[in-house]
Design a protein around this nucleic acid. Structure first.
Length: 191
DNA sequence: CGGAAGATAAGCT
DNA sequence: GCTTATCTTCCGA
């Protein structure tokens, strides 16, 4: 699939190009569509902050595998984080999805995150996963299913990156924190 | 508004 | 045992 080829490029480049793409979550209750607005790149052995920096384990094995799969893990005992496997052939890496904005089905997102005000719905990795209803059972899900109309599940679809992209160091880590591998899509009209 | 601290479990040493 | 790609609440300005 040509339009997904950038996922087989360098992980840092893939992280930047994922900004503006959309995640479509189809459920029995309806459709949730969000735009990806914040990403971070995590690579392999040369990236000490990465789960994959010390070789293959049961948890991180997806980062060593084929591109376009969802890597989900539990952090701090209670939050889920979503990553998209992306790296050059023979390399290792994944892109952490740190945030998004709701395009469709915001009532379903509110149902997943009761009592939370709208502007805080999806502005963090754990919040994003909770808003979309993603947990560990989604680990290893393939996001690039071909075909015009998706069935139940989760899909990655092209979208417009409107606004300006800023590049910053990654957040919430203690190793290699100086590497500017975080990308944020700022809307043209500032909030 | 901003900073600080607690909750809670998988994975590594 | 100890650390961690976090979120929320509580506190003071």
């Amino acid at each position: 699939m040509e339009r997904y080829r950038f996922l087989a490029k360098d992980t840092v480049e893939a992280a930047e190009r994922l900004l503006g793409w959309e995640l479509v979550r189809r459920t029995e209750r309806g459709v949730i569509r969000i735009r990806i607005t914040e990403t971070e790149a995590y690579k392999g052995g040369d990236d000490p902050a990465s789960h994959a920096s010390r070789g293959v384990t049961a948890r991180n094995r997806l980062m060593f595998g084929d591109v376009g799969y969802l890597y989900v893990y539990l952090i701090y005992g209670m939050h889920h984080c979503m990553n998209i496997v992306a790296h050059e052939p023979g390399e290792v890496g994944a892109v952490l999805l740190r945030g998004g904005t709701a395009l469709e089905g915001i009532d379903l997102i509110r149902r997943n995150r009761p009592g939370v005000s709208d502007r805080l719905l999806l502005d963090g990795p754990g919040k994003l996963a909770q808003g979309l209803g993603i947990d560990l059972s989604w680990n290893g899900y393939f996001l690039l299913e071909p075909g015009a109309s998706a069935a139940d599940g989760l899909r990655l679809e092209p979208g417009q990156a409107e606004g300006s992209i800023s590049r910053t160091p990654r957040i919430g880590i203690t190793k290699a924190k100086e590497l500017p591998w975080r990308f944020v899509l700022e809307p043209s009209e500032s909030r």
